[in-house]
Nucleic acid binder design. Structure first.
Lengths: 210, 210
DNA sequence: AAATAAATACGTAGTAACACGTAATTTTAG
DNA sequence: CTAAAATTACGTGTTACTACGTATTTATTT
């Protein structure tokens, strides 16, 4: 049984060692490892492995940026990302990029084997655990989905400390229009009528405003 | 040379494996490992190792909670925490608890050896990297120290989404007084004159308002 | 006891945000 | 092509926050 060639990269030495040792012990065909995004991409370009297991956050290049670069350069390496938080965005990006799965920090080692096996077969791997978490959260984002593109854009700018007038000149519209948008957003989000409730909401949900 | 006995615990299998393999290879006296806080504490109680290297965030018991429990039960095991973010709080807690050092996720493996060696000698280990980060930030907190107790209290309430009038009735003072305090705070913090700059500042520095 | 700092409070005035309504224009979708 | 949705814009009025000055009453400190 010929095993797929694999490279790995992570900027956390301990994690890299854990993964490296694990793959070696299990006799995977580990052909390279890197400590940051740049090294990882170079390894992929040079060795064109079947699978690259990459940390999502690395210096110079993130795992996602590497995935994008691979795609635009028509590299067929299948990307598996390691992440410490369950990020729903990944699931969506996975469809567009060559991201075939992701490994959560608290995965059992067997699950990692499952992941590699599935990806090796050319299928995408998203564990039940992740799917569960992905289907739990959308309740909050429902509200966000009701917003129109303009409203979302304005919400983002509010979260970035912009005043109405600043937003207005950034978007080349009247500041009165921005006010109207704010008003509509407040209605759609069902915010309590209180001063600055929108700013507060925007600040607290900034991370969900991708 | 007799090496100190060590136990380790982490709920991230990969990291646990990395650390475990590393210590074994380097011939440290690794006598046990656990997958969560409860297991970790039981190991400490049963084996009373010289050193326990613990993840800071684990199910059931956090690394810090374990340190506290050890202290109240007069267990002399020296605690080293593994953390993914540089947390300044740790440095202060280390003084009170039996926390002898901490390992950052992006530590090189040599630095981990340094840490264990230092702790083994009964000294506390805080790497230059950490001290640097700890000494860089207080500049911001300097400003906070200029604030009077009342001003800090009000700042906290602002960060908790309270309006002037709400703050006023909470503190049994006039809302005009609150306004004056706000004004003074803005001056002391040198905030740019922009709508809601104080609220924005309070939101962004909420964590520093202990 | 005197000086200093902090907390309290108000006057006046300007700006930003919010509420609610109306309405024209443009885009999108069926 | 037509209906619906989204974007644009304004009128009018209210409330909250901000700026700056003044001033009295409490602590705190020397």
């Amino acid at each position: 049984m010929r095993k797929d060639s694999i490279i790995i990269a992570d900027d956390h030495p301990l994690l890299l060692k854990g993964l490296s040792d694990f793959l070696s012990e299990k006799n995977y065909n580990l052909i390279g490892q890197g400590n940051d995004g740049r090294e990882a991409y170079n390894l992929i370009a040079k060795l064109s492995p079947d699978i690259a297991i990459l940390d999502i956050q690395m210096p110079y290049l993130s795992g996602i940026e590497i995935a994008k670069k691979c795609q635009s350069n028509h590299l067929k390496t299948k990307i598996v990302l390691i992440t410490f938080h369950k990020e729903r965005e990944l699931y969506h990006q996975a469809q567009e990029l060559n991201i075939f799965g992701y490994i959560l920090k608290d995965f059992a080692l067997e699950e990692i084997e499952n992941c590699i096996k599935t990806v090796s077969d050319g299928k995408r791997f998203f564990s039940p655990k992740i799917m569960e978490l992905l289907s739990l959260k959308p309740k909050q984002n429902d509200e966000l989905d009701h917003l129109t593109p303009s409203e979302k854009k304005i919400l983002k700018l509010i979260a970035n400390d912009k005043t109405n007038k600043e937003i207005a000149s950034l978007l080349f519209i009247s500041h009165r229009t921005v006010e109207k948008h704010r008003s509509n957003i407040i209605n759609k989000l069902n915010l309590e009528q209180k001063t600055n409730s929108l700013l507060i909401w925007a600040k607290e949900h900034q991370n969900q405003l991708h």
